[in-house]
Amino acid sequence: MKNKILVVVMILGMISCQNKDKTDDKSIIKTIAEDTLSKTVAGTADVSDAPVKDDKAVELIRKQLNVLLKAELQAMTKDDRFFYYDAFDLNNDQKNEYFVGFANPYFCGSGGCTGYILNNDGSVINKFTVTDFPILVTTSPTEKFYDLIFETGGKFHVLKMKNGKYPSNPSVQEVWKGDIPKENTKVLDIQGKKLEKYSF
């Protein structure tokens, strides 16, 4: 009889341990889900692997590039006619501006590449030259637009909005002194972020 009671106690103990493990698993999953949800709501979750692209933005950029580069289209090969873009609200108006960049010999040389910053309606804020990607958006504004940090020639340069435009040649702008702040946002990270390539 004692042996039977001992066996029953052992079985009950094993079942309760299994239930405890299941409860712990559920608790861990719940904690992870709550953490991810809170980070997503707060805007601190890493969603860089989830490329959400706006087809309207692609069409807008494609149309604008065909206008801006109309005189050059005949000289371009099919491989030259691709762009990358990233969206970022530079002036907190709840509308994204578009950073447009290229990664081919037509637009890039030893000094860096050419690119554009477009308004949400497709109009040009800036054409820039001799830059490497990514571009960094700082947390400090000038004329209601965030300052930008461009890398060119192995140095980081600060670009500030002046009279509605950023300077077009980053290499002649003020050199950033010290470490680059971690809170800056990378845009147009063509190599690192694996942005999608679009034809125009």
Rank of each mutant, 00 (worst) to 15 (best):
36 T>I: 12
29 I>G: 00
36 T>W: 00
29 I>Y: 09
37 L>N: 03
20 K>S: 04
12 L>E: 04
23 T>N: 07
3 N>D: 10
33 A>N: 01
15 I>V: 14
33 A>Y: 00
13 G>M: 09
21 D>K: 11
31 T>K: 03
7 V>C: 02
26 K>L: 13
26 K>M: 13
2 K>M: 07
25 D>I: 09
6 L>A: 00
21 D>L: 13
18 Q>I: 13
37 L>Y: 00
9 V>T: 06
6 L>S: 00
32 I>V: 08
6 L>Y: 05
21 D>Q: 14
17 C>D: 13
4 K>W: 12
9 V>C: 03
5 I>A: 01
20 K>Q: 08
11 I>E: 04
16 S>D: 07
33 A>E: 02
24 D>K: 06
17 C>H: 12
25 D>N: 14
12 L>G: 13
25 D>R: 11
3 N>H: 01
27 S>W: 08
35 D>H: 06
35 D>K: 09
32 I>S: 02
2 K>G: 01
22 K>V: 05
2 K>Y: 08
29 I>L: 11
25 D>Y: 12
5 I>F: 14
19 N>E: 05
36 T>E: 08
32 I>W: 02
36 T>S: 07
11 I>G: 05
35 D>L: 09
33 A>M: 02
32 I>F: 04
21 D>H: 10
25 D>A: 14
13 G>Y: 02
6 L>N: 00
5 I>G: 01
8 V>T: 03
4 K>I: 10
32 I>H: 02
4 K>S: 02
2 K>V: 03
31 T>Y: 03
7 V>A: 01
31 T>R: 02
30 K>N: 03
34 E>N: 08
30 K>A: 01
25 D>Q: 13
26 K>W: 10
11 I>A: 10
28 I>E: 15
19 N>M: 07
23 T>M: 06
12 L>C: 12
25 D>M: 12
17 C>E: 14
25 D>H: 13
5 I>K: 10
17 C>S: 15
28 I>V: 15
34 E>R: 06
16 S>Y: 08
35 D>I: 02
9 V>M: 11
30 K>R: 03
16 S>P: 10
20 K>D: 03
19 N>K: 05
28 I>A: 14
31 T>V: 02
32 I>Y: 03
37 L>Q: 02
29 I>T: 07
15 I>S: 05
17 C>N: 15
11 I>F: 11
